[in-house]
Design a protein around this nucleic acid. Structure first.
Length: 428
RNA sequence: GGAGGAGUGGCCGAGCGGUUUAAGGCGGCGGUCUUGAAAACCGCUGGAUGAAAGUCCCGGGGGUUCGAAUCCCUCCUCCUCCGCCA
């Protein structure tokens, strides 16, 4: 959520950012409305405060007056106040609601260091790590490998739950489980504290991390109980500290959590339908940090390094992409993506997205920090995948495939797979 | 799911319609004393908004009243007992 004070004091500067950096005219319009409504609200506040002050002093006088007659007279003098205050309060509540709904629709402001650009076409590849593997044969896609080796069952996934669902079976299921355990262990080693959060959350959590109200059509919801299914562990983990003031000495707080993630993915039929790249349910290991504002950018770099560590240890080729302003997500102020090369599908797969949100989420979720007698200030929140499982699985299967159709198990995973070194076709 | 009880400041806890700008204690911070520490004593010690005065916050929301932590309605959470259940 935007700092209303900033918008009030430097309206032109903020509007220029929406217009010239984010190329988002709609946001600029919302901001303009917000400035207007905020000005009106401030007038009404002055009125209500004054009325209330008069009421309070009047009522106190009644309390101090012992003589019944004089008391009656004092009470009579208060006639009409209640109505006036109620009226003003009502007007105020309406304006507050307007401000809230406008403010919640505004995207975050990009960090000054983010390069300007209109779309993902202008994103910059910062570095490419690990050479793409050379294959003496045409590398197969994971959907072929997975079915041939009995690791992935597409048909039955669709039978059970419909399009964009699949099952992992046998060694396939175990490989994913091994990746999850191993990733969490690596992140714990990096200093993250493990969390097992709820998969169903209240709506206010999604407002806190900014999936709501704007992206309501991307999340699954249980109407009966008003629960939402988490689209990412970011939601429950970030909301752990909602409405809290954290001791500055405890920062940075670093958590790692594994959850299934549920997304409606309302996109055109036929796009990205092949394989396990994009589904309504997928697993992800997520890192979440709460840091002092001045640590935001250095902590983002460390977060990226921690995610990269996973790909390095898996010996998978990858690249780091820096998002331009126009390709930032709604709530990010700076963001890097990690993409791993999948030789079978012949594309770079986004396996991690690492962002700092500045104080954008902290304002929405009221997560603050305080040192001694200083005034509380908003923390900065960051998160990054470490990593998304299906695409990591794709990259492992496709990069580690051998000419005979078998797949080598990455060295770091073997101890998590009962020592298994090679995945071969199951006996019929 | 049923029956009872309870939600007050970082924590404990008083207040149950009107000098409460929420008593008191614990914890925390600062000071006096001390070679230093402890003890003792003294002072300070929530948040939002606002330039300030002030206004708002006693689980959330609504109501009654000149005036609500206090009364009423409703929802939530926790505790005890019963039922059910991995």
């Amino acid at each position: 959520m935007i700092d209303l004070k900033l918008l009030r004091e430097q309206p032109e500067e903020v509007l220029a950012i929406y217009r010239d950096r984010l190329f988002d005219g709609a946001a600029a319009d919302i901001a303009r409305q917000l400035i207007e409504v905020d000005a009106r609200r401030r007038q009404i506040v002055a009125t209500t405060d004054e009325l209330k002050q008069q009421r309070n002093t009047g009522s106190n006088a009644v309390g101090r007056e012992k003589d019944p007659e004089k008391r009656k007279q004092l009470i009579a003098e208060m006639d009409g106040f209640k109505g006036k205050i109620a009226e003003a309060d009502q007007a105020l509540a309406a304006l507050d609601e307007q401000i809230r709904s406008l403010a919640l629709q505004l995207p975050n402001l990009p960090d000054p260091s983010v390069p300007a650009g209109k779309s993902d076409a202008e994103n910059r590849v910062l570095r490419e790590v690990g050479a793409k593997r050379e294959f003496a044969f045409a590398p197969r896609a994971h959907w072929d490998l997975g079915e041939a080796l009995g690791l992935i069952d597409f048909a039955r996934g669709v039978k059970i739950s419909g399009s964009r669902f699949y099952l992992l079976r046998g060694i396939g299921a175990r490989l994913q489980r091994a990746l999850i355990s191993w990733m969490i262990d690596v992140h714990v080693e990096q200093g993250y504290s493990e969390v097992y959060p709820p998969y169903m959350v209240k709506g206010e959590c999604l407002v806190g991390t900014a999936q709501l109200p704007k992206f309501a059509d991307t999340v699954y919801r249980d109407i009966e109980e008003d629960f939402y299914w988490v689209p990412t562990a970011e939601v429950p983990v970030t909301n752990m500290y909602r409405d809290e003031v954290l001791d500055a000495a405890d920062l940075p707080i670093k958590h790692v959590a594994y959850t299934a993630c549920f997304r409606r993915e309302k996109m055109a039929h036929g796009k990205d339908t092949r394989g396990i790249k994009r589904g309504h349910q997928f697993d992800k290991v997520e890192m979440v940090k709460f840091v002092a504002p001045e640590e935001s950018l250095p902590e983002l770099e460390k977060l990226v390094a921690d995610a990269e560590d996973i790909l390095k240890r898996l010996e998978l080729p990858y690249r780091v992409v820096e998002m331009v302003t126009g390709d930032l997500s709604f709530s990010a102020s700076k963001k890097y993506d990690l993409e791993t090369w999948a030789p079978g599908c012949n594309e770079w797969l986004e396996v991690s997205s690492c962002s700092t949100f500045g104080d954008f989420q902290a304002r929405r979720a009221m997560i603050r920090t305080k040192s001694g007698k200083d005034k509380p200030r908003y923390v900065h929140t960051l998160n990054g995948s470490g990593l998304a499982l299906p695409r990591t699985l794709i990259s492992v299967l496709e990069n580690y495939q051998r000419p005979d159709g078998s797949i080598e198990v990455p060295k770091v995973l073997r101890s998590y797979m009962g020592g298994l070194e090679t995945i071969t076709a199951p006996a019929k």
